[in-house]
Simulated scan of single mutants.
Amino acid sequence: MHRRAALAGLLCLSPALHAGLPELIASAKPAVVLVGTYAETDSPRFTFRGTGFVVNEGRSIVTNAHVLPDPSSLASERRVVVQLWRGPGRWEMREVQNQALARVHDLVLLALQGAPAPVSLRLAGESLMREGAEVALMGFPIGGVLGFAHVTHRGVVASVTGIVLPQASAQTLSPAAVRQLREGSFDIYQLDAVAYPGNSGGPLFDVATGEVIGVVNMVLTKGTRESALSAPTGITYALPIRHVHALLRQPPP
């Protein structure tokens, strides 16, 4: 009974609630979160690292694995947290714990500590989207340089193409990653949409239904990381949502 009561107030975004992009943006904001680290001794105390979004009836957060710091680099007083949006200029910090990891697909599922988040995004099925489909991505480009505010960019699925994601270092090459490299690439969405550093880990929406169809992963740059800000290519990559479904099916650690 207690679990039913706790979940009764959750809002799961669905096609029935979706009436257009402005409505989708307004309803999705509470489920798109800041991901970072927190320590009393840091200045600022919260350090932004990327975007995430709420799934699993408010109990879990999806983001890119590369958004999280290397555990060996975390001091004992620093911990990974998310910030839930509670209205303009209002954020609620919550601790998270690793729930499931797919290093090969650069995805991680984080268990939200405490009560479930009040809004959870609805995931699309596991079929790939057709090229030409209208999409929108939401996140926090450029981090907190201009203050933390949700930003939405619109575009289309330009291509469904094969890719093997680069590994950060030889130390991250797990047996599963080595098998993936040997077996070849997996499908990823190439988008005709602008994203920037800070968008990593954010949701990619099907504009027609309001469902999440992917996770923003990386941006094609012309040269340095700074060029993504001064001269964006307008080419962004997103991981299909089928890989998030696979994470959700993993047994708890």
Rank of each mutant, 00 (worst) to 15 (best):
E57P: 00
A115C: 04
A168C: 02
D106M: 07
A5R: 14
H245D: 04
I235K: 06
V194S: 12
T172A: 12
S174M: 06
Y196I: 06
Q83I: 00
G147Q: 10
E183A: 15
P71C: 09
V104H: 10
A65Q: 14
L123K: 01
T51Y: 09
R103F: 10
S120Q: 06
L229P: 00
G234I: 03
A39H: 06
A16L: 03
L21S: 00
N199Q: 11
G214L: 09
S72D: 15
T236I: 04
A246Q: 13
A133T: 15
Q99R: 15
H2T: 14
S73L: 14
L24R: 02
A246M: 08
V96S: 06
R225E: 15
G50S: 12
P166A: 04
G184R: 02
G132Y: 05
V119I: 07
Q250C: 13
E131D: 03
L220N: 06
P197V: 12
R86H: 11
P197N: 10
Q83K: 14
E40N: 07
F46H: 09
R90F: 09
L68T: 09
R122V: 03
A149C: 11
Y189V: 06
A193D: 04
G52H: 07
A75D: 14
L181P: 00
P166S: 06
T233K: 06
R59M: 09
G114F: 01
I188H: 02
A39E: 08
I235Y: 08
V33H: 03
G125A: 08
D187P: 05
G125Y: 03
R154N: 07
P71L: 07
L191C: 08
V32S: 05
S159P: 00
S120G: 07
P166N: 05
V135P: 01
A65Y: 15
A228E: 07
R90L: 14
S169C: 08
Y189D: 08
D206E: 14
G89I: 10
D187H: 06
E92T: 05
V32Q: 05
Q250K: 15
E131V: 15
L11K: 12
P15R: 00
Q171W: 11
V194G: 02
F148A: 12
H66P: 08
Q180M: 13
E95I: 00
V219G: 06
G132F: 03
R103Y: 09
A246E: 11
M129R: 12
H153S: 15
P253H: 01
P166E: 05
M1D: 14
G125P: 00
I241Y: 09
M138R: 02
H2L: 15
L74Q: 09
A115E: 14
L101Y: 12
K29V: 15
T221G: 15
L110A: 04
S72Y: 09
Q171I: 10
G36I: 02
A115S: 13
L112T: 01
A115L: 13
P116Q: 01
A208E: 13
R86S: 11
L107A: 11
G9R: 13
G198E: 10
S185H: 01
G184S: 02
Q180G: 15
T236W: 07
